[in-house]
Write a protein that binds this DNA or RNA. Structure first.
Length: 545
RNA sequence: GCGCCCGUAGCUCAGGUGGAUAGAGCAUCAGCCUUCUAAGCUGAGGGUCGUGCGUUCGAAUCGCACCGGGCGCACCA
């Protein structure tokens, strides 16, 4: 129905000589401003230097709408035109929500677009910390939103399993193993101190051949490397599974080296004349593509900078056919974005191909104090500890309720609270309460059907709740376009508030037949929307709490 | 010094890509239990949207300058 109004507004606009006016027809925030509002008259008035309210009157006079679409039209404020939709269309919208069920909120504007969302991508040198948890929640949330809007999504984890950090990790493990065998050994310079390596050493002593561990470090290195990378990977996988995140693909930095993709990349850049040698180092002309300085590809000592495998990796993603790549990075890497973008431009990829979602630091507060240390990991709080404290639902919700690029204080005590102060609890409780109505009524939500009479929904709270439910698909689409899952948590809190309010003011069971039946359909629809929103974000929608 | 992000109620934060009287939660204060979960609900107070100019019919939103905070400026990863 909004399409009908939009088309008619466009017709009127061109009749008034403003065919190009980029007017909007949107749902106003304020319910007192009707169901839909347009700024068309304001735009025309701007061009004509005329009085906006007079123009609005002109527009309204010119509008020709079919019967039964709009109940009331009003000119308001500086010249907005507000529309109140006819009531039976609200009832129809209610039925449509119920019939769509789990699919309500889905869209298909992403159909045919292949997106790779790469997130977490933690170094395999230690346990995942809370920052990785935030990245995991955000990456998975963005991926889910894109899927919900029709995109073909691949969730990917990039393993930095090459380089000096891994050598240091293996050396550290070797030292711990020797210490446990009673042989004095010191951790290498810049080695890994955390207790998790001692645990890994214990397992290594059980699982690996004793002669190997008693021999030279050089001889044991390949086996130790395989062992520790496998351990770390397994531990990370288990943790992420407990967090409700699964990946479609893991890609290895070492595999990039082993596959020869590095040489192909360097040859391609060279063929394009984009590299040069200066002071024994090989440089890439990224300044030609918007970077503030050229970047080194191969250092004068012959080794490659990190940019090279990373670029080869992104080139690989492009060759796998993705139209778009979204990398979720820690905000401390933001300075790396311009050079990556420039390098990808150098390869001839369109700017839309590469996108970065930044995640700021997480500070954990418990008992009113910042928690800084983890016994197991050393100088950070692990994701496992956080999950043990608050559970997966609360952790995910909290990470998603703020924009990624703002620093976040995770209040553990709040996340544990079983009261309305805790937003997760508040939203899930709204769902449980609605489920309770059906339980007490001795029926399932499905049994109430999909037909409601608007005339039987007598309270203003009924209509307000329904109008909120109608906004859900717009919220999902907006959140997906902007890669902002926090819009969904915000919406869910608003909806939960509306549900609790409605629940308090409007009886369902025991009301006159038509009202009871219609409110049951409304309750079914509200429960469905809460459930869809929670599920979308990877949270449970409990029927009881 | 250069670049990016941020500054909104006592606190934590929302404020589709310029719209109508700037919102929510917490906290504070005042109320509400014959009710489908009181594990809840209702109401009230509280703001120079960091500051100043500018663009516009209209600015928290866009531009410029300044103040204050964070991060980044590698032949590290």
């Amino acid at each position: 129905m909004s399409a009908v109004i939009r088309a008619e507004l466009a017709r009127v606009a061109s009749a008034l000589g403003a065919a190009e006016a980029p007017f909007v027809l949107e749902r106003p925030r304020d319910l007192g401003h009707g169901d839909l509002a347009t700024n068309l008259a304001l735009l025309i008035a701007r061009e004509r230097k005329a009085n906006p309210r007079k123009v609005a009157a002109e527009v309204v006079a010119a509008l020709v709408l079919p019967e039964g679409v709009v109940e009331k039209t009003e000119i308001a404020g500086p010249g907005f035109i507000n529309f109140w939709l006819a009531g039976d269309q609200l009832a129809a919208a209610l039925g449509a929500i119920v019939r769509a069920g789990d699919a309500y909120g889905r869209a298909d504007f992403g159909r045919g677009v292949r997106v790779n969302v790469e997130f977490v991508s933690a170094n395999p040198t230690g346990p995942l910390h809370v920052g990785h948890g935030r990245g995991a929640a955000l990456g998975d949330g963005i991926a889910a939103l894109l899927e919900e809007t029709g995109h073909a999504v691949t969730r990917e984890f990039y393993i930095n399993d090459a380089g000096v950090q891994i050598d240091r990790l293996v050396e550290s493990l070797w030292a711990r193993i020797q210490q446990q065998r009673g042989v004095p050994a010191a951790l290498p310079e810049g080695g890994y101190q955390g207790e998790y390596l001692s645990e890994a050493a214990e397992r290594a002593l059980v699982e690996l051949e004793p002669p190997l561990l008693a021999g030279s470090r050089e001889a044991a290195t390949p086996a130790l490397r395989r062992f520790i990378l496998g351990q770390q990977r397994k531990e990370q996988d288990e943790l992420l599974r407990d967090f409700g995140v699964r990946f479609d693909q893991h890609s290895s930095e070492q595999a990039i080296y082993d596959s020869g993709r590095i040489d192909v990349l360097l040859a391609e850049l060279d063929a394009k004349g984009l590299t040069y040698t200066h002071e024994n180092a090989l440089w890439l002309r990224t300044t030609e593509f918007g970077d503030d300085k050229d970047r080194v590809l191969r250092k004068s000592d012959g080794t490659l900078t990190y940019l090279v495998p990373d670029l080869a990796y992104h080139r690989d993603k492009h060759e796998r056919g993705f139209d778009r790549v979204i990398d979720v990075w820690g905000a401390d890497h933001h300075g790396y974005i311009p050079r990556m973008r420039a390098a990808l431009r150098a390869l001839g990829y369109p700017d839309e191909f590469f996108e970065v979602a930044l995640v700021q630091l997480v500070k954990v507060v418990k008992g009113g104090e910042e928690v800084r240390m983890s016994k197991r990991a050393g100088d950070f709080v692990t994701l496992r500890e956080l999950l043990d404290w608050v559970g997966s639902d609360a952790a995910r919700y909290f990470f998603l309720m703020r924009k990624g690029e703002t620093p976040f204080v995770f209040d553990v005590d709040l996340a544990r609270k079983q009261t309305d102060e805790n937003p997760v609890f508040y939203v899930q409780m709204a769902h449980a309460r609605l489920s309770g109505i059906f339980r007490v009524g001795g029926m399932t939500p499905e049994q109430v059907g999909d037909s409601a009479e608007l005339a039987a929904l007598t309270a203003p709270e009924d209509a307000e709740l329904l109008k909120l439910l109608i906004r859900f698909p717009d919220q999902v689409a907006g959140a997906a376009r902007e890669r902002e899952p926090h819009r969904i948590t915000g919406y869910l809190e608003e909806l939960a508030r509306s549900v609790h309010y409605w629940y308090h003011h409007c009886r369902v069971l025991g009301e006159p037949e038509a009202t009871e039946r219609s409110r049951l359909v409304l309750a079914r629809a509200a429960r469905q929307v809460l459930r869809n929103g929670l599920t979308l974000l990877g949270l449970s929608a409990p029927d009881r709490m």
